[in-house]
Design a binder for these strands. Structure first.
Length: 276
DNA sequence: AGGTAAACCTGGACGC
DNA sequence: TGCGTCCAGGTTTACC
């Protein structure tokens, strides 16, 4: 499910239901997702007030005075805010109880993840979790620009698409938006990163920001209430130019979109609009 | 160091 | 209907 826009959309949807609430019970129906869930989640989180919900890369952090719950949705994870008595479904792994404010009913933040590639970890106050330590800049921040992208690409023989998905280079760009950004920039995904010049690095930087910004806007406009059952609307609201469109006509020039495999992931591009 | 592939999981779509 | 195969929005880990 989630690349940066989806995680940011989830954060914004959760914000009004979570921020300022006190955590009631924490229930683990499974002791581990991708990794074991650390005991701090059960021992320290209950009773804490959630001061903020932040996003770093594709991670969400629930901040409390005792530390932060660190969540990743992996490929198939989702979060919903539900009435406490909502029936449990398959792969509902974790409940974090949320006490109601001003007489509002208690609710539960429920983490569902069929494939269990997601995780729920803990970050002590003032600490940076090892998983966050090596991450590159946020793509929508001022730390990320064309010159940065250019300098990081020096000496990198890997295909530019693989390079873009390296979270140590820039965070939040996953398989869909990598293909989409390269289409917008007119760059072929197979080009070695080292061959991208300053000017094209600038174009690529703008394409990344453009596609991510628009996706965040779209997600935010359609996903207004996370307490609703589905929690998955908003995805693919942004019409893909190339992703998932193999053999369909390019929206710009009509040439059939090609699909190739790079590093075990599908890549889509237009051979006419993305010549080098 | 950087690049590539395997590994972690389940479910859905498709072909036979 | 059932079974086998392939695919999926991520990221760590192991190995050249």
């Amino acid at each position: 499910m989630p690349e940066l826009p989806e995680v940011e959309t989830a954060r914004r949807g959760l914000l009004p239901h979570v921020a300022g609430r006190r955590v009631g019970h924490v229930r683990l129906r499974r002791p581990d997702l991708r990794w074991p869930i650390p005991r701090e989640v059960e021992d320290l989180l209950p009773g804490q007030r959630i001061e903020a919900i932040r996003r770093r890369a594709k991670y969400l952090l629930l901040d409390t005075a005792a530390g932060s719950a660190l969540l990743h949705l992996g490929m198939s994870g989702s979060l919903r805010v539900l009435p406490e008595d909502t029936a449990v479904r398959a792969h509902d792994h974790v409940d974090i109880g949320l006490e109601g404010l001003d007489g509002a009913p208690d609710r539960v933040l429920r983490f569902n993840d069929p494939r269990r590639f997601g995780c729920l970890l803990w970050q002590a106050p003032g600490d940076v979790h090892p998983l966050l330590a090596g991450l590159g800049p946020e793509p929508l921040s001022d730390d990320f620009d064309g010159d940065y992208l250019f300098s990081r690409s020096r000496g990198r023989a890997a295909p530019v698409k693989t390079f873009l998905m390296d979270q140590a280079v820039v965070v939040g760009v996953g398989n869909i938006y990598a293909s989409e950004a390269l289409f917008l920039a007119g760059i072929r995904p197979t080009t070695r990163a080292s061959k991208i010049g300053v000017e094209r690095a600038g174009r690529l930087h703008r394409a990344i920001q453009d596609v991510l910004r628009r996706a965040v806007q779209q997600g935010g406009s359609t996903l207004r209430d996370f307490s609703n059952a589905q929690g998955q609307s908003g995805y693919f609201q942004l019409e893909a130019m190339v992703y998932g469109r193999e053999n369909q006509p390019c929206r710009t020039c009509g040439t059939p979109i090609q699909s190739i495999r790079q590093g075990q992931r599908a890549t889509y591009f237009c051979s006419r609009c993305q010549r080098s």
